[in-house]
Amino acid sequence: MVEIKTPQQIAKMREAGLVVAAIHAATREAAVPGATTRDLDEVARKVLAEHGATSNFLGYGGFPATICTSVNDVVVHGIPDGETVLRDGDIISIDCGAIIDGWHGDAAYTAFVGSGHSAELVELSRVTEESMWAGVAAVAKGNRLIDISKAIEGYIRRQPRPSTGKYGIVEEYGGHGIGSQMHMDPHLLNYVDRKRGRGPKLVPGFCIAIEPMVNLGTHKTHVLDDEWTVKTNDGGWSSHWEHSVALTEEGPLVLTAVDGGRAKLAELGVTAAPDPAAGA
Rank of each mutant, 00 (worst) to 15 (best):
I178M: 00
P276Q: 12
R161H: 12
G114R: 14
S244M: 00
V245R: 00
G168Y: 10
I99S: 03
G82L: 10
A209D: 01
E15V: 14
M213D: 08
G114D: 12
E129W: 01
H240F: 13
I208G: 04
G165F: 12
E211P: 02
P252Y: 10
P80S: 14
A111R: 06
G102V: 03
M182P: 02
R196T: 08
L202E: 04
G236H: 12
V136C: 07
H240G: 00
L224M: 10
V74L: 00
A21Y: 12
M182S: 03
E249H: 14
V230D: 02
G261C: 11
V113F: 11
A107G: 03
A140K: 15
P204V: 13
D193R: 00
V203L: 10
V122P: 01
Y167M: 15
V113H: 09
L268S: 09
V223M: 06
A107T: 07
V254P: 07
A273Y: 13
I67T: 04
A138T: 00
M132S: 01
E29N: 05
S239E: 10
I146D: 08
R157N: 12
V85W: 12
G52Y: 07
G61M: 02
G174C: 10
A11I: 11
K166C: 14
G175S: 07
D226V: 04
T6E: 04
N56I: 01
N233H: 01
R161N: 13
P64Y: 09
Q8R: 12
G102E: 01
M213R: 12
D106Y: 06
I208H: 00
V254S: 06
P212Y: 12
E153P: 04
R45F: 05
A140N: 08
A137R: 01
V270I: 15
M1R: 00
G175V: 08
H222W: 13
W133M: 09
N233K: 11
K141F: 12
T6A: 03
G82W: 10
D225E: 11
K195D: 08
F206E: 03
M1K: 03
E42W: 09
A257I: 08
G251R: 10
A263K: 13
D234L: 10
G114T: 13
A273F: 14
Y155W: 09
P162N: 09
